[in-house]
Design a protein around this nucleic acid. Structure first.
Lengths: 132, 132
DNA sequence: TTCGATGCAAATAGTTTGCATTCTA
DNA sequence: TAGAATGCAAACTATTTGCATCGAA
C-alpha cells in the first residue's frame, strides 16, 4: 500500500490528513523494520504521536509489535507475517512465510492453538547463536 | 523443589533468609500460576520485593514470564515448560510438553530457530476461541 | 557485630489523559 | 468555521535506585 493510498484510507474514515499523520505514515512506509513511537515522532509531540498511532491502528493501517523488552514498535499492517527475536544476540527478523506455516500447523495439530507472531515475536535462540 | 530446599539454596549462595524472602518463596510455591510482584509483596515493600525477585532469579530459583500486556509475572523455575496466551479470551495456560516438542521441532526444522515459551508466552487464539 | 536486606522516597521508562490552542476540510 | 488534531503539562503503570536503618548469622 503506497502512502497516497494510505492517506486516502485515512480520509475515507473521516479523519484528517495532518502534517504529523502524514509524516508518521511516510516514516513507516520507508522503514524496513518496526519503529518506536519516539523514532516516529520526528519533532512532533510524543503524546500526539501515540494518539496518531492508536487511531491509525484502529482503522487497520498500522499495528504494534512487541519484539522483546523495551518500548513497543510500530509497522504498516501486512508488511510482515510474524517476527522472531533471539534472546542471545537480541536481533529480530521477520519470520519467512513457509516457516510460519510449518510452526502454525504444528501448534494447531499439537495444541489446537493458532499462533500469532505479528503481535508478540517468537522468542528463542536464532540459528547463528545456536551454532556457536 | 520444596520450600526448605529452596531456602537452603538461598543460604548456599551466601544470601540470608529474611521474612520477606521466605514469604515470596512460599507464595510462589503455593501458586498454580505466575504472580505479579504486587501480588507477591503481601504487605512487604514493592521495591524490596522486586529486589528479592531479581536476586532469586539470578540464582536460578525464580523466573519471570511475560504472558501479554501488563506487569511481568514470576514463578518457580522448572514449574512449566512454556505458556500460551489467547489474545481473544485473555487466558494463559501452560503448554503441554508434547505440544511444546512438536512446535519446537517445527521451528527448528523450518527456521533453524529454537523457541522458548517460558519467557514470552506463545500468543494467538486458543482452541475454544477458534471454535466459536 | 557485621554486612546483607529492608523501607521509604525519589527517579525512571513507557504510555495515557485533560485541556486550551491550532489547523484541516 | 466547525470539529479534528496538536502541544504542553500532568497523571499513570511498572520498575529501579539511593540511602539510612534494621536484622540474620
Amino acid at each position: 500500500m503506497s502512502v497516497p493510498t494510505l492517506l486516502n484510507t485515512v480520509r475515507s474514515h473521516g479523519m484528517r490528513v495532518s502534517t504529523a499523520r502524514r509524516s508518521v505514515l511516510e516514516a513507516l512506509d520507508a522503514a524496513g523494520e518496526p519503529l518506536t513511537a519516539e523514532e516516529l515522532a520526528g519533532g512532533a509531540d510524543l503524546a500526539s504521536t501515540y494518539r496518531n498511532l492508536e487511531t491509525l491502528e484502529s482503522i487497520g493501517l498500522v499495528r504494534h509489535v512487541h519484539l522483546g523488552h523495551g518500548p513497543g514498535r510500530y509497522e504498516l499492517s501486512g508488511r510482515h507475517d510474524g517476527w522472531t527475536t533471539c534472546q542471545l544476540c537480541g536481533r529480530s527478523t521477520p519470520l519467512p512465510s513457509p516457516a510460519l506455516q510449518a510452526i502454525r500447523r504444528a501448534a494447531r495439530e499439537a495444541a489446537g492453538f493458532e499462533p500469532d507472531f505479528t503481535h508478540f515475536a517468537l522468542t528463542g535462540r536464532c540459528a547463528e547463536c545456536r551454532a556457536t
